[in-house]
Design a protein around this nucleic acid. Structure first.
Length: 301
DNA sequence: CCCCTCTCCTGATCGC
DNA sequence: TGCGATCAGGAGAGGG
C-alpha cells in the first residue's frame, strides 16, 4: 500500500523523466480514475494536452506535477491502494486507467487494479505560506516536510480524545502515515495504538511522531516497502523495506526487541499489529462504550 | 465542531 | 471443482 515513502519514490522517479516535457496525448480508459476531477474526462484531457510539466511536488500520500499551460495548475495524483505511475512499457494492460504521451515519446501510464486512486487537474492555493494544489490544502504537513512542526502537532494531539492510531491515520493532523507505518511508529515508540491521544504525555507524543519520521526515512532509503506486489516504482520495481518491518504483518512471530509474540487485532475494520509486552494495552478499553461512566463533564465552550 | 462508521473496488486466498 | 466469505485499506460522505 503506497504511503509517504512509496509515493516519494514515485515522485522522484517521475521528476527525473518528465520535468520540462510537454504532454501531447491523454486517454482516459476508466471513468473512476478521474471521478475527483470536477469536469470529468473530457475536461481533464483538455487541460493536460499541450501543458508543459515544470516541476513536481508531494504532500502526504498525494503527488503532483506542476503544469504551465498559460496559467499555473497541477496534475494531482493519488495512488489509492494499488495505483502505479509507470514510464515506458506497461505489463498489465487490463488495469491501465489513464495513458499519456509526452513530446519526447515517453509513455506515462496510470495503472490501478482497485481503482481507489486517480488524477485531477487543480489550481494552486496558498496554505501556511506554501503553494499547494487545492485538493491537498486540507492536509497537515507530513513528517518529512521541512515545514513540519512537530511540537505544534503534539499540541493538537493533546487535545484529541481519540485513540492515537486513529489520529496518526487522520491526514488532516499529520499526513503520509497509513496502516503500515502507523503500526511501525507505535512499535518503535512503545505505545499501544488504542491509547487515547489526550492521555499521552507530550514527550510520548513527540516520540511517536519522531518514530514515524524515522521509520519513513528508513523506508525511503530502502526504496519503499514491497509488502504487496502492487506497489512499484516508475520502472515497475518493488522496494525491500518489508524485510525490516517490526510489527506489521508479523502476527505470531517474536518481537525483535523482547521476544513476546506479536498480536493482531481488528481496529477500524483493519488490522493492527503490536507487541503485547512492549506496547501494553490501556487498562480501560476506550472503545468499550457499554456501561462506561465518564464524569461526562461539561466542556467549557 | 468533534468523533466515528460505512462504503467504494478488485483479486487472492480460505473453508466447506 | 466450485463458490461464497474474508481480507487488503485511503479517503470522504454522512451520522450521531
Amino acid at each position: 500500500m503506497p504511503e509517504l515513502p512509496e509515493v516519494e519514490v514515485v515522485r522522484r522517479g517521475l521528476a527525473g523523466h518528465v520535468v520540462g516535457r510537454t504532454i501531447t496525448t491523454v486517454r482516459v480508459h476508466h471513468p473512476r480514475a478521474v471521478r475527483r476531477h470536477p469536469g470529468g474526462a473530457a475536461d481533464l484531457i483538455g487541460r493536460l494536452r499541450g501543458a508543459r510539466i515544470t516541476g513536481t511536488g508531494r504532500r502526504g500520500k498525494y503527488l503532483w506535477l506542476l503544469l504551465d499551460d498559460g496559467e499555473s495548475g497541477a496534475l494531482v495524483v493519488h495512488l489509492g491502494m494499488s495505483g502505479q505511475m509507470l514510464l515506458g512499457g506497461v505489463p498489465r494492460a487490463e488495469h491501465v486507467r489513464i495513458s499519456a504521451l509526452l513530446d519526447d515519446g515517453t509513455a506515462l501510464s496510470f495503472v490501478d487494479q482497485r481503482t481507489f486512486g486517480g488524477w485531477q487537474v487543480a489550481e494552486l492555493v496558498e496554505v501556511g505560506g506554501v503553494e499547494v494544489p487545492q485538493p491537498v490544502a486540507h492536509l497537515g504537513a507530513d513528517p518529512l516536510d521541512p515545514a513540519f512542526d512537530r511540537d505544534a502537532v503534539v499540541k493538537v494531539l493533546r487535545g484529541k480524545h481519540s485513540e492515537i492510531k486513529r489520529q496518526l491515520l487522520d491526514q488532516t493532523v499529520v499526513s503520509g502515515i497509513g496502516n503500515i507505518y502507523a503500526d511501525e511508529a507505535l512499535w518503535r515508540a512503545r505505545v499501544n495504538g488504542a491509547r487515547l491521544a489526550d492521555g499521552l504525555s507530550r514527550p510520548k507524543l513527540a516520540a511517536v511522531l519522531d518514530a514515524a519520521a524515522a521509520v519513513m526515512t528508513d523506508a525511503l532509503s530502502q526504496g519503499g516497502t514491497s509488502f504487496d506486489s502492487l506497489y512499484v516504482n516508475v520502472n515497475g520495481e518493488s522496494g525491500y523495506f518489508d524485510r525490516w518491518l517490526n510489527a506489521y504483518g508479523r502476527e505470531g512471530q517474536g518481537c525483535r526487541r523482547c521476544g513476546a509474540i506479536i498480536r493482531r487485532e481488528k481496529f477500524m475494520n483493519r488490522s493492527s499489529y503490536y507487541c503485547p509486552s512492549c506496547q501494553p494495552r490501556p487498562r480501560r478499553a476506550p472503545r468499550a462504550r457499554s456501561g462506561t461512566r465518564h464524569t461526562g463533564g461539561g466542556v467549557p465552550g
